[in-house]
Computed example of a mutant assay.
Amino acid sequence: MRLSSATFLFVTCAALALTGCDDEAPTVSPDAGTSTDAGPDAGTPSSTATVTTAHPAEGETDVYPLEMYLDASGQTPVIAFRKVLTLTFSEPMDPSASQVTLHDRTDTTVPARVLTGGWSEDGRTLTITVPRTEESTRPLEVSTHYTLALDALRDAAGLALSPTAALDFTTGERDPELEHACTHTLVNTPEAVTAGRTPFDFPPDTNTGHARYDVTLRPVEGGFGGYTGFISDPENAEHVTLYLNQWVPTKVTNDTAGTDVTSVLAPARFICAGITHTVTFASEPGDQLYLFQFGPVASEHVQFVMERG
C-alpha cells in the first residue's frame, strides 16, 4: 500500500504550522566500472572512475523517503517534498553527461525515472534532486528498494561508466512527529531568548509546545553554554522532545526535586535542514521546574523546536 499512515497527520500538522499552533561519510565504491569491464562492445574500454562517497550510501537502509523544504517559487510559499541524492567521483567527469535512471526494484511495474543532475564546479560531485511524482506527493515510496543506474555518465576523457555502475539503497518508514517538528522549523519565526549563566541566573522559560526557540548562549570554558527552563504539566506526565538544529551536549535536571533526569541525545534522520539531533526525556506532573543545560559547544546560538505530550 503506497499511502503512508503518516500522511493524514502530516497534512494536518503542516496546516497548523502555516497558521501557527495555539497550544551525518564513509567511502563508498559501487561498481562504477574498471578497464576490464566489458561494455556493449567488448573492444570499448570503460571508465576507471569510481564513486568515493554517496548520500545515501551504497546499500544504506532506512533512508528517509523525502525531504521537506519551503518552496517560495510561487506567490505564496508552501511546504514541499523532494529527495536530494549526491555522488562524488574519484576523478573529474564530463559535465555534459548528467542523466541517471532511478529504478524501483520492489515494484518492478513502476516505470523507470530518468533524472538530470547538476555537476559541481570541479566536475566531481553530481547532485540529483528527485521531485514528487505526478501520481504521488512523495518523491520516493516508503520501504522500497531503489537502484540508481549510472551507466550514462562519462569521465572527462569521454569514457562511459560500466553498464553495471549503480547505487542501491532502501527507504524506510516515515515519522509523523519528526515531520511535524520540521514544519515548525520551516514556517515558525524563532522566539529569541538568552540563556542564563547559571541555574540561579533566572533562566528563561522554553516550555511552549510547538514553539521554535533561538537561544543565545553565554561564553563558558570550551565555547558557549547556558541554561533555560521548562515547567511540567500540572496534572500529566509527558514525553518531551527537543528537536535541535545541531549537536549540543544537553543535560536535563529536575530543579524542584533536585535530581538529574535521564535524557537521550541522538542524531535525527535527515528530513529538513533545521533538525539534526533530538533530546528526549520524561517529565513528572505538578508544575515542577526542569532546567536544560546546554554546552559547551562552538556555536553561540542553538535552535530547537519544543514538542511535549
Rank of each mutant, 00 (worst) to 15 (best):
L186T: 08
G225R: 02
P204H: 10
N207C: 06
T194D: 15
A192W: 03
P176F: 03
T170P: 11
E134T: 05
P203C: 02
R132F: 08
V187R: 06
T198W: 01
H184Q: 15
D155W: 12
L150Y: 01
V193D: 13
Y213W: 10
D214R: 03
E191F: 00
L186Y: 00
L126G: 13
A160T: 08
A165G: 09
G196R: 11
F224T: 11
P204M: 00
P199D: 11
S136M: 00
P204F: 03
A211P: 11
S143Y: 10
V215K: 01
T137S: 10
P139G: 00
A152I: 10
P131L: 06
F224V: 12
A195D: 14
F230N: 09
H145C: 11
G172K: 01
T164Q: 12
S136V: 04
E173N: 13
P219F: 00
D175Q: 07
P163C: 13
G229P: 00
Y146P: 05
D151E: 04
T125A: 07
T189I: 07
L167P: 13
S162L: 08
H184E: 15
A211K: 14
R174D: 12
L148S: 05
V220C: 10
P139V: 03
S143W: 07
D151Q: 12
E179A: 06
T137P: 09
P203K: 05
D168K: 13
F169K: 13
T125D: 09
S162I: 13
L150M: 00
T194A: 03
D214E: 04
E221T: 14
F202V: 13
E135V: 14
E173V: 14
F224A: 10
S162K: 03
G196L: 04
G196E: 15
L159F: 03
Y146M: 04
V130E: 14
T194Y: 05
T206N: 05
P203D: 09
I128Y: 11
A165T: 11
T133N: 12
G209D: 08
P203E: 07
E191P: 10
P203F: 01
V193M: 06
L167F: 11
P131F: 01
P131G: 02
P139F: 10
R218E: 14
T198D: 04
G172D: 05
T198A: 02
L161F: 11
L159K: 00
L126Q: 01
A166C: 09
T129H: 11
T133R: 13
T137A: 01
T125F: 02
C182H: 08
N207A: 05
R132E: 14
L178N: 00
A156F: 09
G196Y: 03
H145D: 15
D201H: 06
G226P: 12
H210N: 14
L148V: 07
P203H: 00
N188W: 10
G209R: 07
D201C: 02
T127W: 00
L140M: 04
T194K: 06
L178K: 09
